[in-house]
């Protein structure tokens, strides 16, 4: 798993994949999806898929890839190497969502929450497998949200596939567990090899668990907050823990849509007649249209 592509450009989104085994193009296959790094306030989130012919499901069970959450980082690495060696029949693909992509997606003007981002990423990976010629028949998906709605959404999108969405699917379906291993290993490596884009000198990487309720992580966030620029792009700005520290310790910044937000929460809409009423300063000298159109004004005082 070469992460160099992501390491070079860790502010964007990155797709990594193995070669597609020829067997997967000739035989009916199953595919598992899982994620890694949904909860932390630091580092990327990774979506992973694994796929193999239905006839090889048993081989995965024998590998004992289930219960990946109980494994250490080193054990996960070892398991991944094992999975990667099964090139004859097992393929994988990953979508790495950088903290910057997560933050900008969640904070854009049109609502786009983490669930929607997650679903779209999963859908894109399934589509990638189909586009790569994998003869998919069964898809197994792990979820933290309501399973039925998500399953319905995927079934509508891929009506030809048999889709199963279940919480803790990684402990029920080995193909999901295999995907989970791939995703977790990718996230571990991405975090370990993270290159700070920002010229911050020697950044102390002792940030604890990276989870928002970890006091050590909160302390790291506060220590690495620049009052004008906020955090390094290693941080998910859209997490409320991160936002709270910014609100209290960074300088206020106002954007073009700030007034819009304030106005929309105020008393009520204006009467149509108010647009036709003469304004108080109509008799005041109006600058020539040349200046108004270009937002140029006379200066009375600096």
């Amino acid at each position: 798993m070469e992460l160099e592509k992501f390491e070079r450009n860790n502010w964007g989104s990155c797709r990594l994949s193995s070669l597609v085994p020829p067997l997967c193009r000739n035989q009916h296959c199953c595919l598992g999806i899982d994620e890694a790094g949904r909860g932390p306030v630091l580092g990327p989130m990774v979506y992973g898929i694994c796929f193999c012919p239905l006839s090889n499901k048993q081989d995965l069970e024998e590998l004992k890839v289930a219960d990946s959450k109980t494994l250490s980082e080193a054990e996960r690495e070892r398991l991944f190497e094992k999975l990667d060696s099964l090139k004859e029949y097992l393929g994988w693909a990953l979508q790495i969502l950088s903290p910057n992509v997560i933050s900008t997606s969640m904070q854009q003007r049109v609502k786009y929450n983490l669930n929607a981002l997650s679903h779209d990423t999963a859908i894109a990976l399934i589509q990638y497998a189909l586009d790569s010629g994998v003869q998919l028949r069964e898809v197994f998906v792990d979820t933290v949200g309501p399973a039925e709605k998500y399953q319905e959404k995927l079934k509508q999108r891929f009506p030809e596939l048999e889709i199963t969405v279940k919480p803790k699917a990684d402990s029920l379906f080995p193909i999901v567990s295999a995907a989970s291993i791939c995703a977790k290993v990718a996230r571990d490596r991405a975090v370990k090899s993270w290159k700070f884009l920002e010229d911050l000198g020697d950044v102390n990487l002792d940030y604890g668990s990276g989870y928002p309720n970890d006091p050590k992580t909160k302390e790291w966030l506060a220590r690495n907050l620049d009052p004008v620029f906020g955090y390094p792009q290693f941080v998910r700005f859209s997490w409320s823990t991160a936002q709270t520290i910014v609100d209290s310790r960074a300088v206020p910044v106002r954007w073009d849509d700030c007034d819009g937000d304030e106005k929309s929460s105020s008393k009520g809409s204006q009467s149509m007649l108010s647009f036709f009423a003469r304004k108080k300063d109509d008799t005041k000298h109006q600058p020539h249209r040349f200046f108004q159109e270009r937002k140029l004004e006379t200066v009375k005082d600096l």
Binding site: R254, W255, D256, C258, D259, F291, R294, K295, L296, E297, T298, V299, K300, D301, L302
Partner: peptide, 24 residues
């Protein structure tokens, strides 16, 4: 009314000061 102007050295040339002003 009063407005800001600029004289070059020795008042050889007068300049009007305008400002581009937009919110945010």
């Amino acid at each position: 009314e009063g407005a800001l102007f600029l004289f070059s050295s020795c008042a050889q040339q007068l300049f009007e000061i305008k400002v581009f002003k937009e919110d945010y």
